[in-house]
Design a protein around this nucleic acid. Sequence first.
DNA 1: ACGCAATACCTCGATGAGGATGTATGGTCG
DNA 2: CGACCATACATCCTCATCGAGGTATTGCGT
Lengths: 177, 177
Amino acid sequence: MLELAILGFLYEAPLHGYVLRRHIAALTGHVRPVAESTLYPAIKRLEKAGLLVRATEPGAVAAPRHVLRLTEEGRVELRRRLAEPGQREITDENQWFVLLAFLRHLEDPAAQAAVLRRRLAFLEEPTSFFYEGDRPVRAEEVDDPFRQGILTIARATSRAELAWLRDTLVSLEGVGR
Amino acid sequence: MLELAILGFLYEAPLHGYVLRRHIAALTGHVRPVAESTLYPAIKRLEKAGLLVRATEPGAVAAPRHVLRLTEEGRVELRRRLAEPGQREITDENQWFVLLAFLRHLEDPAAQAAVLRRRLAFLEEPTSFFYEGDRPVRAEEVDDPFRQGILTIARATSRAELAWLRDTLVSLEGVGR
DNA sequence: ACGCAATACCTCGATGAGGATGTATGGTCG
DNA sequence: CGACCATACATCCTCATCGAGGTATTGCGT
């Protein structure tokens, strides 16, 4: 997820670590803060894999900056990760949002639609949060107000996202014609 | 998060690992599957910390079962974790849902309300997902349909949860009078 | 007779993530 | 003029997590 965010932001423009960190913090930081000690090793991994290069520049205000720029391989890799996301990126809202944030870079509307359809299929599957023995407990049976809250919120999110997914799929398919 | 789920389910009834795993999978597995190789070490950690004990029983159908039962310390620890959640448990929806699923075990309505109020405070803070340079980009300015989707979905979830939180807080405070 | 799925548990190695801390510099504020 | 904050990067250690694999039993289908 972190690597996807790094590739995504650098796809748009070269950045140095500090600014990149702020961008990532804005995107996902309110939910899960990004520790510097996670970001810098991630940058190194991507550099080692040949997906990005660093150029050291004198710091504008403080220490020297390492301006990060995607290589052509890095650009290809981002598009690959967007087109073929892992199951976690489809199911976990946090990761899914990161993917959505950069899905525009996939350019081909059919490929974008295919990704949205995977999310749609996931949301359309029925899920039960609680069981009593082996029997799934239905929403109306839950008497705990907190568990009812989970179901209420999950249903609201799901409804909103399904509506958006269907709308967006229609307009993406409209483009192809 | 995993440990909280284990403590939470065992608080309700002693279970053996396999059933526990199915319960956890129902609660969070559609979003983030729990690997067995994560669950069993987690059980061991909790056992080592004195929060649960095992009793080996002959297996009903297959291998012998290890029935897990919380110790008194384990029960105290669950209530402590529910009453004093870390910031991640408040902000990350996945972790928050796990916490909510067991919040009823906190019994004291005032303590439950205090936890809900922390979530409320978090949701009431304004957040901006995207920046252009240093300037936060407002929702209306986003032209990318996928980024608009993020904002649409996030807003719908937030609205639903805020409504539920306020309702539930009112009824929890009603209890105290 | 054979395989396969389900039950039930476990270990190991790699790695990603997180907390704490270190090392600079330049600007602001009291 | 000293404290402090923001910028900018980095490392260390620890631990949770994951994938891959291992062990063993029961029972069903074919």
